[in-house]
Simulated assay, not measured.
Amino acid sequence: MLNHKCVECGVSFYMGHQGYLFVKTLSPLPHPLEKHNGQWYYLPYESLEELEKSLLQLQQELGDLFEHIKGGLSTTEERPYITFPLNLLLMRIVQRDVVNVIQNGELMSFIQPIISLQKNDELYGYESLLRTGGNHSITPGQLFSTAEKTGMLSLLDQRAREVAIQARKNFIQPGVKSFINFLPSTIYNPDFCLQHTFHLVTQYNIDPADLVFEVVETEKIEDINHLKNILYTYKREGMKVALDDVGAGFSTLETLKMLQPDYVKIDRHYVDHCDQISEKQSFLAQVMGIAKDLGIIVLAEGIERKEELEYCREIGIDLAQGYYIGKPALPSNIFIYGGK
């Protein structure tokens, strides 16, 4: 059975500038909500500003009950098919500008180069990083924070994967890897939720072996078995997987052993001045030992100094990424350290 939250993935949330707010509850609701029929109440509104004001007033009057009642919007007096908890509905109205960007705004993929330290710094791949386009200047952090608060992470994560795959098709040569972030919590049923991504790979005639899907650093791993199932689903389709930011928070060395990804990316904290700090050198040695035993490719991210790069090369780290090598940029503007 699919998780009930699947309704949020790929489904647009329509915010008509005029329409009706519908609320479903067993308890009588205060004026100005009017009884519709059965358990339903409704309230007409003439603007989103008016709707926001009405929801805030209702929140004040209902108190804690507000978040346990569901509501939806409609442009007619017919009840909506999809409803949400009122606190979620209110958040979507309050954050409507960012919500519109998440749903329909122009998104683009910046890319940051990754080089092979053991092969003369030749280009190995790019990490795809989500950015907004057009007249919007919304940071990725703000996008994902708003998406989390409004229950739209699944939709945003899906769109981010789509623009990354499109950018790869248009700008990246076959044989060069694309590292694409994903949020495990948005994938409730891997066989179902990832079909959109797999369809895009087929549609754009991309070799699955050129794609590396990585668990992003902001995601907390709560269910290792579920994550293992997601990684297995990617691998079954011929793609590679990476564990990001090992050493930071949830990404421990034990997690690395349990998940056994194709790649491991070492957190910037352990790369910063690794040429000078013995504790960081000890941690890097541990990662390298485990990775060698399991056949995992190691990537040092966040390299900002030549000394860091050379130390990572010296101890056998395979790949490197960071501002010293190349900053994230539009594919047409990319510059790589060393001119390679």
Rank of each mutant, 00 (worst) to 15 (best):
Y204M: 09
V201D: 02
V201P: 04
Q203C: 04
F198L: 06
T186P: 00
E214Q: 12
F213W: 09
D210T: 13
E217W: 03
D207M: 14
H196D: 02
S185F: 04
T202M: 12
N189R: 11
T202V: 14
H199K: 09
I187S: 00
I221E: 04
E219G: 07
V216A: 09
D191S: 13
P190I: 02
L200G: 01
P208S: 13
Q203W: 05
P184E: 05
C193D: 06
F192C: 15
N181G: 04
C193F: 02
T186L: 01
D191F: 05
T197Y: 00
D207P: 07
F213V: 02
E222R: 10
H196E: 03
E219N: 09
A209P: 13
T197A: 00
K220C: 11
I224Q: 15
I221M: 10
E219V: 09
F213H: 06
V216M: 13
E217N: 11
P184R: 01
E217D: 12
N225E: 15
E222W: 11
Q203I: 00
P208Q: 10
Y188Q: 08
K220G: 15
Y204I: 08
T218L: 05
V212P: 00
I180S: 01
Q203G: 03
H196V: 03
Y204W: 13
N205M: 10
H226Y: 06
D210S: 14
Y204F: 15
H226W: 03
V215N: 06
Y188W: 12
H196Q: 07
I180G: 04
E222H: 14
N225A: 11
H226N: 06
F192K: 07
N225G: 14
V215A: 12
I224H: 14
T202L: 13
T197D: 00
F198P: 01
Y188M: 05
E214F: 09
F192L: 14
L211T: 04
V212W: 05
S185R: 03
L194V: 00
E214L: 07
N189M: 08
D223H: 13
N225C: 12
H196Y: 07
I187W: 03
Q203T: 03
E217Y: 08
V215W: 12
